[in-house]
Simulated assay, not measured.
Amino acid sequence: MADRLMLLDSASLYFRAFYGVPDTVRAPDGTPVNAVRGLLDIITKLVTTYRPTHLVACWDDDWRPQWRVDLIPTYKTHRVAEVVAGGPDVEVVPDPLEVQVPVIRAALEAVGIRIVGAPDHEADDVIGTLATTATMPVDVVTGDRDLFQLVDDARDVRVVYTARGMSNLEVLTDASVVAKYGVLPSQYADFATLRGDTSDGLPGVAGVGEKTAAGLLATHADLEGIIAAAAASEGMSAGVRAKILAALPYLSVAPKVVAVVRDLPLAVPDTRLHALTPEQRADAFTLAETWALGTAMNRIVAAFDALEAP
């Protein structure tokens, strides 16, 4: 089987699992484990469907890096929980999910899935770096459109998009990004900068929606070309030109916020998937018994076994 790396946008997936499995699913001590069980089943489906040889659970060591907030103060503001003045930003996470995150990490480690994060960076940046430096084809699994910028047919980097649910997974290539938005994946970050994204607190250029943004990029190639054309009053209507020029302070900082980092100095351990050793298997099933993960653990262990079957 040819090598293929799968990169999981971990938080995106465990949030999906949390909302997709009833929180009546609980461990013997009453702790909810719906997100844990759901995430294990999601990974089982992904591994069975796409048969990666390598797998990394990419982690948000910092879900809202200060350097991004310094550039755009509204970045993810709506996701910040109310905290004591002067305290660190805390992401709004439902209590029944927050208590499961340590169990999620323990379950991933129990089945041999490597967890990789980076100080002061989001999982997106870890994914960007690993996808860019990989020496094999890559599948990025996410419900986040920002990662469409990583799609690259020439390097066989695809996005497995989960927004429509695990039964309606969508594999995005160059052609499908163009079909969806009218821009190439290499233009997607500029497209998102122009359009804005309320889910990330990015205002975008006032009055410029997806259609206008795609048209500008088709004509001027990139954000730099669009700004140059607006400054020179070339190839642009007066109305659009005025909108671009009014947004120059935003456009001077937003690209750095929107673009995923691709050059983090990551120390990545061996990410190859293996059938569990007898010792790992015993530990995994002990963890499963403690947290009532039951058949979800059985299924993921069997899926890893199947990868090594002839």
Rank of each mutant, 00 (worst) to 15 (best):
D124C: 02
V151E: 09
V92H: 11
R155M: 08
W59G: 00
P94V: 13
Q100S: 06
V84M: 10
D125Q: 12
L147E: 00
P96T: 09
Q66E: 13
P96F: 06
V92R: 14
D153S: 01
V83T: 13
V116W: 05
V80K: 05
P88I: 11
Q66P: 12
V83N: 03
D125R: 12
I72N: 04
A118E: 11
P88L: 12
R79T: 03
W63L: 08
T133G: 13
I115Y: 01
D120G: 14
E98M: 14
D124R: 02
G117W: 00
D89H: 15
P73Y: 01
V69K: 06
M136E: 15
T77A: 14
R164V: 07
A154V: 09
D124G: 06
Q149Y: 11
G86Y: 02
D120C: 13
V103Q: 09
D95G: 11
D156Y: 10
L97Y: 07
V83P: 01
A110M: 11
V111K: 03
Y75Q: 06
D153I: 00
G86T: 05
V111Q: 04
R164K: 15
V157A: 09
E109V: 10
Y75H: 11
D124A: 06
V99R: 07
V90I: 14
V159I: 12
L150Y: 02
L147H: 02
T132K: 12
V69E: 04
A106P: 08
T162N: 11
D139T: 07
P65A: 08
V159L: 11
K76T: 04
V99Y: 02
L108S: 08
R164N: 15
T135M: 13
R68T: 06
V151T: 09
V92G: 06
R105P: 09
V159G: 06
P119N: 01
V140W: 03
I104L: 08
D153Q: 01
Q66A: 14
G117P: 00
V160H: 03
A134L: 01
M136V: 15
R114T: 15
D156G: 05
V157W: 07
D144P: 06
T129H: 05
V160W: 04
T135R: 15
I72P: 04
